[in-house]
């Protein structure tokens, strides 16, 4: 997942696109080390020391990781749980839609 997300963020850096993480690592120092090692540039909500049982995944009923929601520029949920190439295709489609003023 991470290498693909990294390349997607890099590829779309000049587009109206954002990848927002909800990160469930418990240990911030481990996060910092991995972030550097893996070249993670996107912003994440941090779920606190309860990790996967933190407030955001709990409220959203997340029981599997990764869980993905793809929103259009109006904030509407358009796709769920698409990964890698399929995620990229969906994002490109929504960017196209936005450009065409749909």
């Amino acid at each position: 997942m991470i290498p693909h997300e990294r390349s997607l963020v890099e590829k779309l850096k000049d587009q109206p696109f954002a990848l927002i993480g909800v990160n469930s690592d418990r240990d911030k120092s481990y996060y910092a080390q991995q972030q550097q090692e893996m070249g993670v540039s996107w912003r994440s909500f941090w779920c606190g020391d309860k990790g996967t049982g933190g407030p955001i995944p709990t409220k959203w009923g997340v029981t599997g990781w990764p869980t993905i929601y793809i929103l259009d520029h109006k904030g509407v949920i358009r796709f769920k749980n698409l990964r890698n190439e399929k995620m990229e295709e969906a994002v490109e489609k929504l960017l196209e839609e936005m450009k065409n003023g749909d």
């Binding site: 997942m1 997300e5 997607l8 587009q15 109206p16 696109f17 954002a18 990848l19 927002i20 993480g21 909800v22 990160n23 469930s24 690592d25 481990y30 996060y31 991995q34 893996m38 912003r43 994440s44 909500f45 990790g51 996967t52 955001i56 995944p57 959203w60 997340v62 990781w65 990764p66 869980t67 993905i68 929601y69 793809i70 929103l71 259009d72 520029h73 109006k74 904030g75 995620m87 994002v91 929504l94 960017l95 936005m98």
Partner: peptide, 18 residues
Amino acid sequence: FKLSDYRGKVVVIDFWGF
């Protein structure tokens, strides 16, 4: 920060961890 800060952009929300 808020998710709604990104309104006007296409957004992928990714529940993840290392």
